[in-house]
Computed example of a mutant assay.
Amino acid sequence: MVYLAIRLFGLLVLAWLSAANDESLADNLSAWDGEWYLEIASHGYGGVADSLVDGYGNRSPETPLAFFPGYPVLVQVLDAVTGMGVDAAAVVVSLAAGIAAAHGLARIGRSVGGSTGVGLLLVALFAASPMAVTLSMAYSEALFCALAVWALVGVLERNWLLAGLCCAGSGLVRPTAAALIGVVGIAALVALVQRRDGWRPLLGALLAPLGMVLYVGWVSVQTGSLGGYFALQQRGWSSAFDGGWSTGRFALETLTQDKSVLETFTVWIVLAALVLLVLCVRSRMPWPLVLFAFAVLAVDLGSDGLMYSKVRLMLPAFPLLIPVAIGLAHRRTTTAVCSTVLIVCFGAWFGAYSLTAWPYAI
């Protein structure tokens, strides 16, 4: 209920800003990457409309392969079963995945923070994150976050089958699954070395990379190149790992020149995320959570591409919010409530502004 209430508030703010900018709420919920996912769900990779192009305005038969199949396949299946249409099915899949993620986050929060309050605050902070608006859109963020949350629940509770299956599923949803695969694999290796849980950690380690290996391998066959998927990303969206050079340059330019509100807030949110990562280390959280948050930030901030997407791509780094949830849980109720409300309002505005007033892709 906490998750749904905050996401409903976010949608109301999006509706308000959509009307203020003479835009349709429905169109904004399926904007940008959502158009690709809906086309793939409707017509498959081979039937995507030619009007959809990459970040440079180009299009080839391989361009749609840059989008992983897990989310559009679920949308397609739900539409086939219910007949509700792919637009509605996309929102329903994201809604269901978000609820699943909220349950997993509450479980992690209770385990790490030691109380139900920490779990609920973690859910609230996640639902109010900047760019959490994508959790309600025709985007794959909600599905990936749900699978990542439950994979980490599996790791923390030493349920290696759950961890392996959820990690494998995430590999069919987003390339960020590489971060999760690494965490599950290392955790399984540690368990094997310590001779815990018998052969089950090995099962988790073997299952974890299957989804990503299968899809990236299939794209390699389709493109005739072993690194075909990564070449598509670099050629179409200039997305390649550069050690953070492009992100650092963007941050310095934004903080020293006359830039837009969204660009300025983007840099400060990135800096806040780095501070939260330090707090995660200092608070001695379970190392799989810290490692996953670090890996997500490394993949996101260490890559080139659209700088305006950096905040959205940080969304799966939810362990960064745990120190904040624990800190608020130990404050007076009034302080915790007021702080959370402020975060909710800022997150709702930032996401809505990004989709309405901001003219570029997120």
Rank of each mutant, 00 (worst) to 15 (best):
D54M: 12
V48L: 08
G119D: 09
V123F: 03
A102L: 04
N159V: 06
G117D: 06
P130S: 06
A142P: 11
A66Y: 14
P61A: 02
T82F: 05
M137C: 14
E62I: 14
G164M: 03
G83R: 06
G83K: 07
G169V: 00
V118N: 08
G164T: 04
G169M: 08
L95H: 02
S140A: 15
W150L: 00
A66L: 14
W150N: 11
V133N: 11
V118G: 02
G113R: 08
L105H: 03
V92E: 13
L120P: 00
T134I: 12
L120Q: 14
G46L: 12
D79T: 02
V75P: 10
G83L: 04
V173L: 03
S140H: 13
A102D: 01
S42H: 10
Q76C: 13
A168N: 03
L65G: 01
G171S: 02
A96H: 05
R59K: 12
C167I: 00
S60W: 15
S140L: 10
G104T: 07
H103V: 15
A124Y: 03
H43W: 08
A132P: 09
M84H: 03
G117S: 11
E141H: 09
A101N: 02
E157I: 05
S170M: 00
M84T: 15
N159P: 01
A66R: 12
P130E: 02
A90K: 05
R110Y: 09
Y56H: 14
L161W: 14
G98R: 00
D50I: 08
G85S: 09
S51Y: 14
V93D: 13
R59L: 04
A41Q: 13
L95R: 08
L156Q: 15
G109V: 05
V93T: 09
A101Q: 11
L135C: 10
A66P: 07
G83P: 01
V86R: 05
L152D: 07
G169Q: 05
F126D: 10
V75T: 10
A179V: 01
G83M: 03
H103G: 15
